[in-house]
Amino acid sequence: MIGTETGTGSARSRLTVLSGPSGVGKSSVLAELRRQQPDIYFSVSVTTRKPRPGEVDGVHYDFVDHEKFQQMVEAGEFLEHAEFAGNHYGTPRRPVEEALAAGRPALLEIELQGARQVRVAMPDARLVMLAPPSWEHLVDRLTGRGTEHPDVVERRLAIAREELAAEKEFDEVVVNADVQSAASDLLSLMVGPRNSGD
């Protein structure tokens, strides 16, 4: 089990927000993090994007149509929501709040726009950027996928430049040169000592 600051039910868990450019390996790092520490609450984002091969509804994302997504926005069900590469993404508010209230460290994997919204909504959240070892490495990852049209790849690269330029807005940066090491570094940031001690 994760060591959290426990009192008599007064533990306050840390909310960590992970962001980084497309192709940096967020899915691989999170899969390894799940293996290392299954007690962490991983928020499942809602998206209007179509599933990629191997993605499972309700596990990787909750896939919905645009109409359903808009209904959720109007009902105030999202902690944050944003548009990215022509698709909409949102973090359901209630499961995150329930996990934190129960004393579980929670992790959100969201885009830069959403991370900025969470910074406003939950100032205590720790923002972590997952960065590539080099720009060339990221380009190779994106062009090597072969699952998207070249125009889409070029648009993702342009967005990636903007995201990496926002590094100073984040509290920490984890470089994904090795998936296992990156996951371990992220885990240490999530459950390590707080600045405001016990």
Rank of each mutant, 00 (worst) to 15 (best):
Ala85Phe: 09
Asp124Gly: 13
Gly146Asn: 13
Arg93Lys: 15
Val191Lys: 00
Arg141Lys: 10
Val175Arg: 03
Ser13Trp: 01
Pro123His: 09
Ala182Glu: 01
Gly197His: 14
Arg116Phe: 05
Gly23Tyr: 02
Gly23Lys: 02
Glu74Gln: 15
Ser134Cys: 07
Leu130Arg: 01
Asp171Leu: 04
Val128Lys: 00
Pro92Met: 05
Asp39Trp: 11
Glu80Leu: 08
Met129Val: 06
Glu109Pro: 02
Arg119Lys: 15
Asp151Pro: 02
Glu111Gly: 15
Val17Tyr: 00
Ala106Lys: 00
Val96Tyr: 01
Arg155Leu: 09
Ala166Phe: 03
Pro21Ser: 13
Val179Ile: 14
Ser45Thr: 10
Ala11Trp: 04
Phe78Leu: 04
Met1His: 11
Met72Trp: 14
Leu30Cys: 09
Ser13Leu: 02
Val175Trp: 00
Thr91Tyr: 01
Ala75Thr: 08
Arg141Asn: 14
Asp140Gly: 11
Asp140Gln: 13
His66Phe: 10
Val175Cys: 02
Thr4Arg: 08
Val174Pro: 03
Glu136Arg: 09
Ser13Glu: 11
Ala183Val: 02
Asp124Phe: 10
Gln71Cys: 07
Thr91Asn: 07
His149Met: 10
Gly7Glu: 14
Leu15Phe: 07
Gly54Glu: 10
Thr48Gly: 09
Ser43Trp: 01
Met1Val: 08
Val24Asn: 02
Ala82Ile: 02
Glu163Gln: 15
Leu164Trp: 06
Leu138Val: 09
Ala177Phe: 01
Val120Ala: 15
Ala106Gln: 03
Asp171Thr: 06
Ser10Cys: 12
Val44Ser: 04
Arg14Met: 04
Gly90Gln: 03
Ala125Gly: 11
Glu32Gln: 13
Glu97Gln: 13
Ala102Gln: 13
Ala160Glu: 05
Glu167Ile: 13
Val173Asn: 03
Leu157Phe: 09
Ile40Asn: 04
Pro95Cys: 10
Glu32Lys: 05
Leu100Tyr: 00
Ala99Asn: 08
Met122Lys: 11
Arg126Gln: 15
Pro193His: 08
Gly76Leu: 03
Ser45Val: 08
Pro51Arg: 05
Ser28Gln: 13
Ser28Val: 09
Gly86Lys: 02
Gly90Pro: 02
Glu74Lys: 11
Val73Phe: 04
Thr47Leu: 04
Gly3Ala: 08
Ala75Val: 05
Gly20Ala: 09
Arg156Tyr: 03
Arg116Leu: 12
Glu32Ser: 09
Ile110Leu: 10
Gln36Thr: 08
Leu18Asn: 02
Val179Trp: 03
Leu33Ser: 06
Asp198Thr: 12
His66Leu: 13
Gly54Gln: 08
Lys50Ala: 15
Pro21Lys: 01
Arg116Tyr: 05
